[in-house]
C-alpha cells in the first residue's frame, strides 16, 4: 500500500508560515534601515584616549554617545560648542550650524558622529538622539 503522505495537522501546520513572516519582517526592517546600520560601523571614541593623545586622532571619524553637560558657546552663524559627558570625561564638541536642526539641551543623551580636526577639536557631522 502505498502509503499516503500524511498532511501536518494541528498547531504545527501554523508554525512554518509564522517563521516565514518573521523572517520577511526582519528582512524588511534590516534593509529599510541600511543607513543607520552604516553608522554603527563607525568606531566609538574612547574619551580617555582623546584626552591623552588627541593629536593622534586628527583626521579620524568617531562615534560618541554622551550626555550634554553644558552649552559653552553659541553663535548663529557658526553653531554651538557644547561639553559632553562621556563616562567620567567631559569632551568639547562643536555642533555646526548645519547640524542645529536638533534642539540640544542640557542632560540630553545624544549620539554624535565626530571628526577630529587639525587642532584636535571634535566637530560633529551627525547628531542623533539616542
Amino acid at each position: 500500500m502505498a502509503r499516503h503522505r500524511k498532511s501536518p495537522s494541528g498547531p504545527a501546520r501554523f508554525v512554518f508560515p509564522i517563521v516565514i513572516l518573521c523572517l520577511a519582517a526582519g528582512g524588511f526592517v534590516f534593509f529599510r534601515g541600511s543607513g543607520e546600520g552604516q553608522a554603527r560601523t563607525i568606531p566609538l571614541l574612547e574619551p580617555r584616549d582623546y584626552l591623552d593623545n588627541a593629536l593622534a586622532l586628527r583626521g579620524n571619524t568617531y562615534r560618541l554617545q554622551g550626555i550634554v553637560d553644558d552649552s559653552l558657546v553659541w553663535t548663529p552663524g557658526n553653531g554651538r560648542l557644547i561639553s559632553v559627558q562621556a563616562g567620567e570625561v567631559l569632551l568639547p564638541v562643536v555642533v555646526p550650524r548645519e547640524q542645529s536642526d536638533l534642539n540640544i539641551q542640557k542632560a540630553q543623551r545624544l549620539e554624535f558622529v565626530l571628526e577630529v580636526d587639525e587642532e584636535g577639536l571634535l566637530r560633529a557631522t551627525k547628531v542623533t538622539k539616542s
Binding site: 552649552s71 558657546v73 553659541w74 553663535t75 557658526n78 560648542l81
Partner: peptide, 14 residues
C-alpha cells in the same frame, strides 16, 4: 570657546 566659535553672540548656561 571664543577662539573656536568667534561671533557676536555667545551664551553659556553656567
Amino acid at each position: 570657546g571664543t577662539r573656536i566659535l568667534p561671533g557676536d553672540e555667545t551664551e553659556n548656561s553656567d
